[in-house]
């Protein structure tokens, strides 16, 4: 799978999601990045909620994930890349739809996460994994 070019800004944190507690730990790190930019509560809440969905997907469906957080102070943006080496998503368009789930979730995770952020892109290759990049403005 091709690697995404690095987002603008400087590295803030890098975490590995291997167990459930890591989802919590990683989304807290995203919250800290938003705090660093002095984000309003609603903007912080939106991004942290969106990444929580994505991180949990990375753990449950991807078998674990790597998270890279980048801080763009000039543009007041927090960028989050979440990469897993799971089975990949067969039909991305379908996966983005509300109501779709292959697991026990509510099927609102991916589409919902996209609505909550400024920037959302997802790349998936069957048998190789899935990369999600999100960004929220502080």
């Amino acid at each position: 799978m091709k690697t995404l070019s690095p987002p603008p800004g400087k590295p803030f944190d890098r975490l590995v999601i291997a167990v459930e507690a890591d989802v919590f730990r990683s989304r807290q790190a995203v919250g800290r990045a938003m705090d660093r930019l002095g984000a309003r509560v609603i903007r912080r809440t939106r991004l942290v909620t969106a990444v929580s969905e994505i991180f949990r997907n990375g753990l449950v469906y991807g078998g674990g994930a790597e998270v890279v957080i980048t801080l763009d102070e000039a543009d007041r943006m927090v960028w989050v890349d979440c990469t897993d080496q799971g089975p990949g998503i067969a039909d991305l368009e379908l996966a983005m739809k509300d109501g779709y789930t292959t697991g026990k979730g509510l099927g609102r995770g991916l589409g919902g996460a996209k609505r909550l952020v400024e920037h959302f892109e997802i790349h998936s290759v069957l048998g190789e994994g899935t990369q999600v990049r999100l960004a929220g403005r502080a």
Partner: peptide, 14 residues
């Protein structure tokens, strides 16, 4: 429920 949480949940469709 915090106000920001309520607003975010509505946007999630939940």
């Amino acid at each position: 429920m915090r106000p920001a949480v309520a607003m975010t949940l509505v946007e999630l469709g939940m």
